[in-house]
Nucleic acid binder design. Structure first.
Length: 559
RNA sequence: UACCCCGUGGUGUAAUCGGUAGCACAGCAGGUUUUGGUCCUGUUAGUUGCUGGUUCGAGUCCAGCCGGGGUAACCA
């Protein structure tokens, strides 16, 4: 699946740990899981976690589960549950089992009663502010709740009444009885259950108390027989609690291992901020082609293969790093180069009139669909005396290192003929409105029988045959590589991140279907939008430009 | 000021139980080319955060220091 094969099997601290667990016999079978909370759509950061968990299961002949971490109905929605499943499938992974934390609510509650009976949990009547105030700070210990000394019997009665719906939201919580002076604040009597009279997308109105992350996650892993519970670095300080609960309940204890989350220049991977972009109308939705969400990347034209190859390449470590955006582009271009069909399109047109072309004549020329893939075949493209070329491909007074069309110069029209520029038309302001040329009939197909060479090949489209279509050109959504570090990330939004132009495309593109990817030769890779395209009226999204040595040199020379 | 984690070329990431630093991307320079794309070749760049210590030998072990990150939701 990966287009850039990794010659050596991946070695990293997680796989090393798994190998040693297998060797020591602590683990017989590798079982991993991807546990998203259905409160938003998946983004590229999740792609790393998904790739990691599913690949490890594959490599070790184990299983990987998809589990909705749906313990907070206030934030979650069925829309996201469906979206997440679709996105994981799109990436190319299939879970061995689909689970929901909500399906464990009964078991979780039974365990809570167990903890209460053991004297390891109590009902606290303090409100949220009081609990926060008595938790202490990072440097100062907390103080015991006045309700900490309740008897197991009293706690059990209160817990049952909490569950029965006798109390109002926020009036009581169930807390673990650990140590209010612990150096790790997560062990200072963490909250296990809060009261929320809210329907849950999966359990309806059956519950009015919902478990907190810490109380639900480790046990969910344990129930599913997860061998290695992989999560990001910020959960490192939760691990002692994860272990404490499993030990207190005497259940199988998975090994939590933390790794650094994925960071890529110019991309935001904070659900909160992405939500702000969507709700603030900065982008057109979760699937806006500028979004780093999987559905956004998909509409932009990214391939799942490129994303997975990228995720595999970056590997996994504990060091907090940020990858250059260019690395992502490398994997994208690498896959697209091998798979995308070539087409010709002019986005900034300049008329090219071939004065010695027989009036009204049209010839069909053969064009290769993909030089990287001979099996992709060829197509026919109409050639006439009225063409459109890219304005960038003509210069009236060219510098010595400009190889394209200029007065007196001869170039090759890709798959067509050699043409020599004989003059230009200008408007009152001096702007070139058309270029005149003569063609050499002997060069049909693009080769001169006399062996003469040209310095450049440019793309073109026959004006009378061209299909005009909407083409959306995207740039980075942010003007700085690290938008998350900005005082206000909305202030560094790139105002030119989306530009819509009317492109002139070769006629075969009229049949382009949503979801298809093309390379518009010499320009960029484009995705036929599956959302806005209509039969006969495709809409294209620029996925990523081709590398452009000329533009780069120009930019360098210009300062 | 508490606890935990981390620190290898521009960016990332490797280096079996310690044996003198590899790979990818980026950069630069050539070559090939009907895409100034692709491909091929070569090349620049690291005193492995610092200082000590152990050792015949340390990126790998120990100590101290410096730097970065995480953690105080009835979020996950």
């Amino acid at each position: 699946m990966s287009t850039v094969p990794d010659p050596t099997p991946p070695t990293d601290f997680i796989r090393e740990r798994i190998r040693s667990d297998l060797q020591s016999g602590r683990v017989q079978r590798v079982v991993t899981r991807f546990p998203p909370e259905p409160n938003g759509y998946l983004h590229i950061g999740h792609a790393k976690a998904i790739t990691l968990n599913f690949s490890i299961a594959q490599e070790f002949g184990g299983r990987c589960h998809l589990r909705m971490d749906d313990t907070n109905p206030a934030a979650e929605d069925q829309e996201y549950v469906d979206g997440i499943q679709a996105d994981v499938r799109w990436l190319g992974f299939q879970w061995d089992a689909m689970y929901y934390a909500a399906d464990y609510f009964d078991q979780l509650y039974l365990w809570a009663e167990q903890l209460v009976q053991k004297g390891l949990a109590y009902v606290d009547d303090q409100d949220v502010d009081a609990i926060a105030a008595t938790r202490g700070t990072l440097t100062a210990p907390g103080t015991d709740s006045p309700f900490r000394g309740r008897t197991p019997a009293e706690n059990l009665d209160l817990l049952r009444r909490m569950k029965a719906g006798e109390f109002q939201d926020g009036s009581r919580v169930l807390r673990a009885k650990i140590d209010m002076a612990h150096a790790n604040v997560h062990l200072r009597d963490p909250v296990l259950y809060r009261i929320r009279h809210l329907p849950h997308q999966r359990t309806g109105n059956r519950w009015c108390i919902y478990p907190m992350y810490d109380w639900a996650h480790g046990q969910s892993d344990s129930i599913e027989g997860i061998s290695h519970s992989l999560c990001t670095l910020e959960f490192e300080v939760h691990r002692p609690l994860y272990d404490w609960f499993c030990d207190a309940l005497g259940i199988q204890k998975p090994q939590q291992i933390e790794f650094a989350r994925l960071n890529v220049e110019y991309l935001l991977t904070s659900k909160r901020r992405l939500l702000q972009l969507v709700e603030g109308g900065v982008v057109d939705g979760w699937d806006d082609p500028r979004m780093p969400t999987l559905r956004g990347l998909r509409r932009r034209g990214y391939t799942p293969e490129a994303l997975v190859a990228f995720c595999k390449h970056v590997g996994v470590a504990k060091f907090n790093s940020t990858h250059e955006f260019g690395l992502l582009e490398f994997f994208l271009r690498d896959h697209l180069n091998k798979t995308a069909l070539r087409r010709m399109a002019v986005l900034d047109p300049l008329r090219l009139v071939i004065d010695n072309w027989p009036a009204g004549q049209v010839e069909m020329v053969d064009a290769q669909n993909n030089p990287e893939d001979p099996t992709a075949g060829t197509r026919q493209v109409p050639f006439s005396g009225e063409l459109l070329i890219e304005r960038d491909d003509f210069l009236e007074n060219p510098p010595k290192d400009f190889f394209r069309l200029a007065p007196g110069r001869e170039v090759r029209l890709r798959f067509g003929f050699f043409v020599r520029c004989t003059g230009v038309d200008k408007d009152a302001t001096g702007k070139v409105t058309a270029v005149h040329a003569t063609y050499d009939p002997a060069t049909r197909g693009g080769n001169a029988p006399d062996g003469r060479k040209v310095k450049a090949t440019i793309h073109w489209v026959s004006a009378p045959h061209a299909l005009q279509a909407e083409v959306r050109l995207f740039e980075q959504l942010f003007t700085v590589p690290d938008p998350a570090a900005a005082e206000n990330f909305l202030a560094v939004v790139n105002q030119n991140s989306k530009r819509t132009v009317s492109g002139w495309l070769e006629p075969s593109l009229r049949d382009a279907k949503g979801g298809e990817r093309f390379q518009f030769e010499r320009l960029a890779y484009f995705y036929c939008d599956h959302k806005d395209s209509r039969p006969g009226a495709p809409v294209f999204h620029r996925t990523v430009t081709l590398k452009d040595a000329w533009a780069k040199a120009q930019k360098k020379a210009g300062g």
